Structures are given as structure tokens and as C-alpha cells.
Simulated assay, not measured.
Amino acid sequence: MLQHFVHYALHFVVIGFIAYLFDKKNWKKYYLVLLATMIIDVDHLWANPIFDPDRCSINFHTFHTYIAAAIYLVLLFLIKNKMLKVFFFGLLFHLFTDAFDCLWSNTY
């Protein structure tokens, strides 16, 4: 129960603090960008079953691989647009959150 609370708090609450750190005046705009990074989970729809509580997302789902993470990291540093930087940071934070969840449940 605590693990699920922490997982979703990282996905929905902590990104609010991150958005505030990016821009105190426009944090809501950046929160929405970070929230939009949940689109990464579309790759869960290709899995069978779609949800498996004992499965680690990292290196199982297409957009949750180490290769994808490397691409997000490179794009984070190459892109000049602040919104896109926040988006790629959000994708990496999403992967961090999922990896933390895998470590917690010993499914890594």
C-alpha cells in the first residue's frame, strides 16, 4: 500500500514541486508539461497483460528501456526550447520513478 502511494505521489505530487523549481511564476504550465509525460505509458497497452503488478516496466516496455532513456537524456541536453527540456526531464523522472518502484518490489 505504501509503495503504491509513494509511486503515485512521485508521478503526480513531486512533479508539482519540480515544476515550481523550473519556474515559480508559471509552475502550473510546467506541471502540465510534466503531467503530459505520462504519455510514455502508452507502451503498456502493447503488453499482455496490460497491467501486471509483478512486472518491472524498465526494459520491458518500449519507451521504458535504457536506450529510450539515453535518447531522452541526449535530447534533454541538445534541445534549447525550455518546454521541451522540461518534457524530456519529465520522461527521465518518470523512468526514475518506475525504476524506484522496481527496486522497492525487487522486480528489477
Rank of each mutant, 00 (worst) to 15 (best):
M1E: 13
M1K: 09
M1P: 00
L2M: 14
Q3K: 05
Q3H: 08
H4M: 11
F5K: 05
F5W: 10
F5R: 03
F5T: 15
V6D: 04
H7M: 02
H7I: 00
H7R: 09
Y8R: 10
A9R: 02
A9Y: 08
A9H: 04
L10G: 07
H11D: 06
F12P: 14
V13N: 12
V14T: 15
G16S: 05
I18K: 06
Y20K: 12
L21C: 11
F22Q: 01
F22E: 01
F22K: 01
D23Q: 07
D23Y: 08
K24M: 06
K24I: 06
K25I: 09
K25V: 09
W27A: 01
K28G: 01
K29W: 12
K29M: 12
Y30V: 05
Y30F: 13
Y31I: 01
L32A: 15
L32T: 11
V33W: 00
V33C: 00
V33H: 01
L34R: 04
L34D: 05
L35E: 14
A36V: 02
A36K: 08
T37C: 11
T37A: 10
T37Q: 11
I39A: 15
I40F: 03
D41R: 14
D41S: 13
D41Q: 13
V42R: 13
V42G: 08
D43N: 10
H44W: 10
L45I: 12
L45E: 06
W46C: 05
A47I: 14
A47P: 07
A47Y: 12
P49R: 02
P49V: 01
I50V: 15
I50M: 11
I50W: 10
I50D: 04
I50A: 06
F51R: 13
D52Q: 07
D52F: 05
D52S: 11
P53M: 01
R55D: 07
R55Y: 04
C56Q: 02
I58D: 00
N59T: 08
N59K: 06
N59L: 03
F60A: 08
H61N: 07
T62N: 06
F63A: 09
F63Q: 10
F63E: 09
Y66W: 14
Y66L: 11
I67G: 03
A68G: 02
A69V: 02
A70Y: 15
L73E: 02
L73S: 09
V74K: 07
V74Q: 03
L75A: 12
L75T: 13
F77K: 04
F77P: 07
F77I: 11
L78P: 00
L78R: 13
K80P: 03
K82Y: 05
K82C: 03
M83E: 14
M83I: 15
K85H: 03
K85E: 02
K85W: 03
F87S: 05
F87I: 09
F88R: 10
F89K: 00
G90V: 01
G90N: 05
G90Y: 01
L92C: 11
F93G: 06
H94P: 00
H94K: 03
H94S: 01
F96P: 04
F96K: 09
F96W: 12
D101C: 09
C102M: 04
C102T: 10
C102G: 07
W104C: 09
W104N: 15
N106T: 12
N106D: 12
T107C: 03
T107Q: 05
